[in-house]
Every structure is written in C-alpha cells, then in structure tokens.
C-alpha cells in the first residue's frame, strides 16, 4: 500500500536526519580526541557539559517559540535579569534561597508572558516585540543592580545549586555538577511537554498553519502566550543556574546569548519557519557548539577564530538540512 512506502520513506529520512546530527557531534569528538590528549578526559567532558547547560536551557526554551514560527531575542538579557532578581531576593532582601530561585524563574516567566501578550494581543511581530524586551530587560538588570555584580557570599547554599554534586556524593569520583543534572531533567521535561501534551501539539499546530489552527477553534492568542511564558521559565532557570555557577549575578553579561541559543536550535534542525523541530535536536545542536568551542580552545585556536568557525558551522548545518529536505 502506498502509505507503507510513505512511512518507510519518512522513516528513512528521519533516521538520516538524526544520524547526520549525532554523526556530526561524534565526528567532532573523534577529531578533537585524535588532535589532543587533553580532550577526551573526564574533567574536560564534564566541562563541556557544564558549558552547554546555560546555553542549552535558553535553547530548549526558545525551541518552543521557534516551532510556532516566532522568535525570542530577549532570552539573553532576560536570563541576566532573572539572575539579578534572584540576587535581589537573596542578597538584598535576605529571603530564603528557594524563594530566590522562584523569584528568578518567575522573572523569566513574567518576561515571557509579557512577550506573549505583546505579540498575540498587540499583534507586534515577534522579532520587534522581543527586541524591545531584550532592551527593557537589559536596562532593568542594570538599574536594579546599579550596574554592579550582586554576590551571593552570605548564602553559600546558592552556589551549590549548580556547582554542588549529588552524583559525586553517590558515586565518589564522578563529580558531575548539579547543573548538568538539572539540564538533563529539563531536557526530559521539555521533550515530554513537546511530544506528549496539549501544549506541544498546539505549538506545532500554530507553527504549521496558524490560520487553520484558529479556524479549528484553538485560542491561538492564549496558547502563544503560554508558549512564550514557557520559554521564559526555561530562560529563568538558565539565569538562576548562571548566577549559581558564577556565585554572582553579573548584570553586564547575557547579551549575545540569545544568538548562540538560536544557533543551537537551528543546527538541531528546527525550522525557523515553524511547524518542525525537536528538543533532542536542540540539545545536540547546543552540544555541537560547546564541543567545538571547547575543542578549538584546547587546540589553542584564538578565541576570535572560534567565533568565525562557529558561524561557518551554523551556515553549514542549515545548508545540510536544506539538502536533506530536497532529497
């Protein structure tokens, strides 16, 4: 039957795509392992994972948004604002650490919610709306922190959120920082939301054909707001993780992170025109980027050149995806 061949064809294409992504990551690993003995060590692998965490969190969040056919440019500075707000909660107001975490994540969610409302109710194009939010969040972070880092010196447990090691306690010697653990849990969570729940279904539906979704009776405005808020939650978690890792909220950091995250999503095969994408793709994309940077650093390639190579990788990855689609 024709449907059977369809299925087979689609299945093969899907396999090829997954293979291409994982294959590229694997190739990078093999290449760097052969090039330098310092690459494939437990310490370095952990540091790659750690380096992926924050970017990965942002990328997971923005994956949801990009699948709707939208974009969120504010994730970088909203992450900073979230970090600053947890600093305000914990260091300025001496609130318990868990409230500080909630405050940070909540800040991210609020910003996402605001993006969602501006985009769905005021009908601003996502690019413009989130560009505005990017500047708002950047400014607020500087104002609130008075442009100085906020340190978490009197709350030592805060830094353990990211840099402590539950795994290390259970299996001595394997000191995988908690940040990695949190990232893995977030990946699982994001995958479930995207593939098993109503939110994910409507995410794809809106990105695939917004008008059809509306005519099918979906409250598109509401669901867009939900999705931008969801993105904000992941970004907020990224912010708290960042602050915990640095044991301080750095108000000047963050701009430019949004582009790295979007690059990871795109490398992972999520289509910027919406309707297609996966969390696994995004995670692999994020790993490809951090592995590349890490490996080039180990090979003593100057930082400036690392950026150039990353750019070429983005173009190459998307080109591969275009070829795949034609095939």
């Amino acid at each position: 039957m024709e449907t059977a061949t369809y299925n087979l064809k689609r299945f093969r294409r899907e396999i090829l795509r997954q293979f291409l992504m994982f294959g590229s990551l694997l190739l990078l690993f093999i290449f760097f392992s052969l090039s330098s003995p310092n690459f494939f060590t437990f310490g370095n692998i952990v540091s790659i994972m750690l380096a992926t965490c924050v970017n990965g969190m942002l990328a997971l969040g923005v994956t949801f948004v990009i699948i709707t056919g939208g974009i969120d440019l504010s994730i970088g500075t909203v992450m900073t604002l979230s970090a600053v707000m947890s600093g305000v909660f914990i260091t300025y107001w001496h609130l318990p650490v868990f409230l500080g975490i909630l405050g940070g994540v909540g800040t991210g969610m609020l910003c996402g919610f605001a993006n969602g409302v501006v985009i769905s109710k005021m009908k601003l194009p996502p690019f413009i709306a989130t560009l505005g939010m990017m500047m708002v969040a950047k400014g607020l972070a500087l104002v609130i922190s008075k442009a100085a880092p906020i340190y978490f010196t009197h709350a030592p447990s805060f830094s353990r959120i990211a840099m402590g090691s539950l795994v290390g306690k259970l299996f001595p010697g394997f000191d995988v920082p908690n940040a990695v653990l949190i990232f893995i849990v977030s990946i699982v969570l994001a995958s479930i939301i995207l593939t098993k729940t109503v939110v994910g279904r409507y995410d794809f539906a809106i990105g695939s054909n917004e008008e059809a979704a509306r005519l099918s009776g979906l409250n598109v405005d509401k669901w867009k707001t939900v999705i931008y808020s969801l993105c904000g939650i992941f970004v907020g978690m990224g912010g708290v993780m960042m602050a915990s890792r640095l044991n301080s909220a750095q108000p000047a950091l963050g701009q430019g992170y949004e582009l790295d995250a979007i690059a990871a999503v795109v490398i992972g095969g999520t289509s910027l025109s919406g309707g297609e994408g996966s969390t696994i793709g995004t995670v692999v994309g994020a790993f490809i980027m951090s592995t590349l940077i890490n490996g080039l650093r180990i090979l003593s390639v100057p930082q400036e050149w690392q950026i150039v190579v990353s750019g070429i990788i983005v173009i190459g990855a998307v080109y591969l995806d275009i070829i795949r689609r034609q095939g």
Partner: peptide
C-alpha cells in the same frame, strides 16, 4: 484553501482543539 496543518498527522489534524486526553491526567494526549 485547505485549513490543515501540514506538519501534523491526519489524526492530529482531525482532532485538533478537542484532543482525547489521558484519563486522570488531562494535560497529556
């Protein structure tokens, strides 16, 4: 002009907006 979502499956398109949910856990499909 057909109002379908090309990236979703046939069943997903038919039931869009009124999906069957898992019993007892209504967020899940």
């Amino acid at each position: 002009e057909l109002n379908l979502m090309p990236h979703l499956t046939v069943a997903q398109n038919i039931f869009i907006g009124r999906e069957t949910r898992r019993k007892g856990f209504s967020l899940f499909l």
